[in-house]
Every structure is written in C-alpha cells, then in structure tokens.
Design a protein around this nucleic acid. Structure first.
Length: 569
RNA sequence: CGGGACGUGGCGCAGUUUGGUAGCGCGCAGCGUUCGGGACGCUGAGGUCGCGGGUUCAAAUCCCGCCGUCCCGACCA
C-alpha cells in the first residue's frame, strides 16, 4: 500500500470528545471515526486490525470444534417475551427496537440465546447429535445508558458469541473447558495481558462463569488478584480469607450521646474510636421483612453478595419511610434490642469483642456491644467488599485491586434458556430433556481497544504483530533523491513479494512527519531509507514497541526485516 | 436516570462577561526556498457560529425551547 493513496488522515490533536488513550489514538491514527455516540466507522486501517482480530478468534473457535453460522441482526420479539428478556431489556432500555410495516415489534440483536436455542431444537432431536457448539462473529446492538471510551463500550460492537449444547452437565463442563482454553489462545495470540477471573454468578446461583480481564487504567471493572498465587476474581465476586480470633476484651454496655453524628466518620471522630470498632448496621427489606446487615465500620457492604446470600428474596434498601415503619432510627441503628429483625453479619463481625453501634435512639450510640451477649446474629456471611491488602482466600497472602477491561465472558448456563424455550432432545432412555447450555462471548472490537490500551505509549500505538494493519512501513526519507526512492521502492516490492504487509510512505512530506505518523499508527517495524544511509550503504530499522534501532546493509534489508519480524511477538 | 461541562471552517481553540464587519494555530491548495524526528515565506480556498423561536436598529454574544457530544455516578455485561 502506498501511503499517498491510503485513506488515512492523521490528526495532530486528539478530538475534544476523546479521553481514553485507545480512543484518542485510534482516532488520531485514522483507525476509527465516530458517527454518533457509541457508533463508529472503521477506516481502512481500523478495519484491517479488526479483521485480524476476528480471524484469530475464528481460527481458535474452529480449532476447538465450534461451527460458524450467521444469525440475523433483526430479531422478532416473541422468543424474547417468552424468556422475559424483552421486558427486562425494555426496562433497562438496552434493546434498540423497531417496527416493520405490519407493525410487528422487532429488535436489533444484543445477544442470541433466544434465537440459537430454538434453532438447535428444531434441527437436532437426539442425544446422538450432541454435543454441538455454534458461534457467529457479528455486530451486536445495545443501547447503552452511557457509551464511553470509544470502542471500549460502544452501542454497536463486533462480538463473537458461541453457544454450546450438551446432553448433561458433564458434557457442558467439557465444552466449557474447551472454550476457556480456546479463549486463552485467542488472547495470547492477540498479545493481551489478561487474567481469568471468577465472576459474580448472579441471582440464579451455582452457575460457573469466568471473565477474561485485560488490565488497563481506563478499565471499568475492578478485580482482585493475589500477589502470590493465581487467585483472581471480579470485585463483585471476590472474597478474602476469614478473619482469625477475636480482638479486644469485653466491655460493659454504655449509651453515650452523639448529637447529629449519623455517619461512621462523624461518630468515630466524635468518640475518638477507630472506624474498625464501629459496627455498621445497614437496614434492608427482604420480601417485606426487615433485615439488618452488619459490617465493620471500615468496610463497605457488597450488595451483590448480600443479594446472593438472601436469594431468592428480593432485597431492597430501606427508604426514610421504611425506617419509621420498622421502628428504626436512620443513622442510629444497632442490632441490640431489635425485635423481629433478621440479622446477617459479615464474618469479620466475629473478630472483635466489643463494638460501638447505634443505640436505636436519636443522637445516641452504644459502646461495649458484644456479639452473642447483646445481640444474636442469625447468619454469618461473606458480605464486605474486598479491600486492598486483605488476605487471599486461597493462600492467605495479600490481595490487590486492579482496573481492567472485560474482553471475554464464559458462562455455564445450564437449562435456563432451553427450559424456558422448551428446547429439548430425546435422551438415550427415550425421555425428553432440555439442552444443557453454555454461552461464550468475546468483544472483538473491544479486544482491539484493549490491545491499543496495553500496546501504546506517548507517541502512539505499538501493535503486536498479529493485530497490526501492516507489519512494516518503509519510509522514503528524501523524496527528491532518485536513489533513495529507488531503494525504498525496491525494499517495498521485495517485502510485498515475500508476503509481508507493507506500507510505502511515499508522501511529499517532511521526514519528521513520516516518522511521527509511523510511530502514531503503530506499525511494528519501520524501515527508513534516506540519503544518509545510502551514503554508508545502509537503511535504518526500528522496532516500534521498544524503539530499538539498527542499521541493515542495503542489499540485505529485506532479509533483515524478515528476521526482525520473525523475532517479534 | 441524577450531577457537571461543552457545541464557532477538517482538528484544536479564542471571541460570549459589557450585542456593533467572524478570528488564531494546525491542516488543505498554488508558487518558491528547505529536506533524517511534526520546516519557512508569500498567496489563497474554506464557516447557516448545533437547530428553532424571541428581544433589539443590530445577536456567535441576551432570553426561551429543542438537539447533539463528552465526563462523574446509577445501571449493564
């Protein structure tokens, strides 16, 4: 490709509406352009990188035995109404909906369980046909409440979604394991640094699922990882090791005045006690009945964990009116002396002898409150959000928290969709059984953004070889020198003949502009052919990712480039 | 959905407070000089100032409504 013909105009300044590094760079380097919020055009360079990512995903899916198909983007509402997700998505306003000329309700596909499940049920009727794993690579539509950071969270995005259908849970586990391995190969090949983390199983409970998290500053997801072993989990799902023996001695109960001090900060500062010694009592209603959740004052309650612990009950935080109804005083609630209130406490509540907590009396707190003596906990659960430095649940060493981008998600669905959609097969004993399903997603366009986040610096993008739109750029440093042009053309042609994807920067521009654009666009290898080098019989090779430079004798430039490429990841 | 900010040539911005001929830098076109890390000079093209209404002799600027975009949060996966 000749740069002078390439549909790519780089920008010196990042557009004002881009903030994330990958977003700024992909726009500046002419990979993408925004059309409307969360919807982007892929320019020739961006499309090449997207297609390469897609090809890697496709190869690994095929290698894992999955079969590619292509389902429609425009979907009927009926199957979604059966599973209840039409209503759910409508409530979240996540589905782009439309109507055809007959007034039929349609939606743009946000995911395809409702489509693939009836399809398989209609085609395959026997256990003999199973297992089967189907996937597609296709544009998905989700009318996100807040699209952000360019390709990291867009409303139209390229996704690989796979669906496995097994006869039983054993089969599902095999299908699942094979997908997880395929995912690892995909992300390895894309040059991503990532962790496989345990994710929140959700309210269904028991479902195994993993997220593939690529660490990045701009990541939206917080995840916990052990500094020693390989434990890693989404913060929502993470646990820490349970605390040890009780600290501190018993004390006598005493009610003290704490005028207007309704917060942890207010109370502990007023009384001069450590937030660790305060017992936070958070009031909820579960199916109409009051529940108190207890966590130490220096801890945040993880509502997801609470919901899971109390499932299938509907958990709702109390509003001001509810406090009155249940005879509680907001800001001064304590677990002692409360009648008819279920008390759920974090494990850490066991680790301290005496607590300061609300006195259930306006502007008063009680000190010396002892678990077991002054109040009775109904259930101990893991309720607190993991904090930096907590002990690992596996090895006990320190945990740390990082930000990351979710590039993939694998899920053991079970029979949730097949039962709802009455998708069954006939088993060996003649009985009708619902398919045991798994679903597996990779955000292909998001992988591009994640790779840009992980492989870039202040000068621009620095693609891993596998994702670069072109492997090599040959820079004509002095366009007015015939020998320079001839040598550059020769190298360009030779590389092309050897199957290397190469750009010849033949523009009439100052050398500095070309060097800077080459850095910005992130081609892994740069070859500079100029007067200076010609004089000494060499061309300059530069490795973009490290900045390492070397001279290659002119006759052997092509071989030197091939060798350098070979050595790159 | 709650909070905040912004909308002026392709990109980045000034001008709005105090209404009075629409500006700057980059980029783009032509000519010349330059030429190994974003060169210089001269000349030039390019703008319904987001849209609609209102106030006024006069609106980028003041008022009302709408639309769009981004950021924080909620939500989502």
């Amino acid at each position: 490709m000749r740069f002078s013909r390439l549909f790519a105009r780089t920008l010196r300044d990042a557009p004002a509406d881009a903030e994330a590094p990958s977003h700024q760079l992909l726009v500046r380097a002419a990979y993408i352009r925004q059309l409307i919020s969360g919807i982007y055009t892929f320019l020739p360079l961006g499309l090449k990188t997207l297609r390469k990512t897609e090809a890697i995903v496709r190869e690994e899916m095929n290698a894992a035995g999955a079969q590619e198909l292509l389902m429609p983007i425009v979907l009927p509402s009926e199957p979604w109404k059966i599973t209840g997700r039409w209503q759910a998505y409508a409530a979240e306003q996540l589905m782009f909906t439309l109507k055809d000329r007959a007034g039929r309700e349609l939606g743009l596909g946000p995911t395809h369980e409702e489509i693939v499940t009836p399809l398989v049920a209609a085609e395959f009727e026997s256990y003999r046909d199973l297992p089967v794993n189907l996937y597609q690579i296709q544009w998905k539509y989700r009318d996100e409440a807040r699209p952000r950071s360019g390709l990291l969270r867009s409303r139209e995005f390229l996704m690989k979604d796979a669906y496995s259908f097994d006869r039983d849970v054993e089969g599902l586990k095999e299908s699942y394991a094979s997908m997880v391995e395929a995912y690892k190969r995909v992300f390895d090949r894309c040059g991503l640094t990532y962790r496989v983390v345990e994710a929140d199983p959700g309210l269904i409970g028991g479902d195994v699922n993993h997220e593939f998290m690529a660490p990045a500053e701009v990541g939206e997801d917080l995840f916990v990882r052990c500094t020693n072993c390989d434990y890693a989990a989404n913060l929502e799902a993470a646990s820490a090791a349970e605390p040890g023996a009780r600290e501190g001695g018993q004390e006598d109960l005493a009610v003290v005045e704490t005028p207007g001090r309704a917060t942890v900060k207010g109370v502990t500062e007023f009384l001069g006690v450590d937030p660790k010694a305060l017992l936070k009592s958070l009031a909820f209603e579960v199916d109409g009945k009051p529940v108190l959740a207890l966590v130490p004052g220096d801890r945040e309650l993880n509502e997801t964990k609470l919901r899971r612990a109390l499932a299938p009950g509907e958990v709702r935080m109390l509003d001001d009116d509810d406090f009155q109804k249940h005879g509680m005083i907001k800001g001064f609630v304590g677990p002692q002396d409360l009648e008819g209130v279920q008390i759920v406490a974090d494990h850490r509540v066991r680790s301290r002898a005496a607590w300061v907590t609300g006195a259930n009396k306006l502007d008063h707190h009680t000190t010396g409150v002892v678990d077991g003596r002054d109040f009775a906990v109904d259930r101990y659960e893991d309720l607190a959000t993991v904090a930096e430095g907590d002990p690992c649940p596996r090895c006990g060493r320190s945990l740390e928290i990082g930000r990351s981008i979710e590039v993939g998600h694998t899920f053991q669905l079970g029979t949730r969709y097949s039962e709802a959609l009455k998708a069954t097969f006939v088993d060996e004993d003649g009985s009708e059984q619902p398919f045991v399903m798994g679903c597996y997603g990779i955000g292909v366009s998001r992988v591009v953004a994640a790779a840009a986040e992980q492989h870039s610096d202040d000068k621009g993008l620095a693609w891993p070889k596998a994702l670069a739109p072109y492997q090599v750029v040959v820079i004509v440093v002095n366009g007015d020198d015939e020998r320079v042009v001839a040598e550059a053309e020769r190298v360009y042609t030779e590389l092309g003949a050897r199957g290397v994807e190469v750009v010849l920067d033949d523009r009439e521009a100052a050398a500095g502009v070309k060097f800077n654009d080459a850095d910005l666009m992130g081609f892994p290898v740069q070859v500079a052919v100029g007067k200076r080098g010609i004089k000494s019989g060499t061309a300059d090779l530069k490795r973009r990712s490290t900045g390492d430079r070397s001279d290659a004798p002119l006759p052997g430039v092509t071989a030197a480039v091939l060798e350098l490429l070979e050595s790159l990841a």
